[in-house]
Amino acid sequence: MIVFAALNFELAEDHFSPGIDQRSIVGSVTLSADCREFLKTEKAQKYIEDGVIPSDGIILEESQYSLHEGDSAFTVLKSALNENNVLFDYTNVSEHSVYVKGISNVYEYDGGDLSGWMYSVNGVFPTAACSEYILENGDEVRWMYTCDLGRDIGDTYYDTAPNVGDSQ
């Protein structure tokens, strides 16, 4: 039992029905997640046939989620996905930085070498890790799958930033 508790062992039903969040609600944010760019790749057909992703590529419709105190782009995504029974996978890159590897079984590198999940807040692509970006009331968070380092979903970081690719 102690081992189970330490490893946080949960069955699927328990996982998708989490307890009530004790933190105070400070507002609300809009959140959506889509993998439209992934649909253009060869693999997408199998994913749609298997029922892993919907045929329009929208995993989470744009909708309102309550914002708790200290919520980051990651924690809001996590609770939204759990609420909608969607699987996802992440790693802790460092103590406080989380990297989202895959949402609904669409993983990084599934759409090529330059693919993976990115997020934008109010149309801007932050350069911080999603768990370090603390959201404010009324923010609009969009999680998007890119197949080209963000260029195909509107991020201009790699086109405008100087010295990209230089070792510093």
Partner: peptide
Amino acid sequence: HHGVTVLFFLRGL
């Protein structure tokens, strides 16, 4: 953690 048939969750994954 790839795959759709979940057996159980460990540490949230």
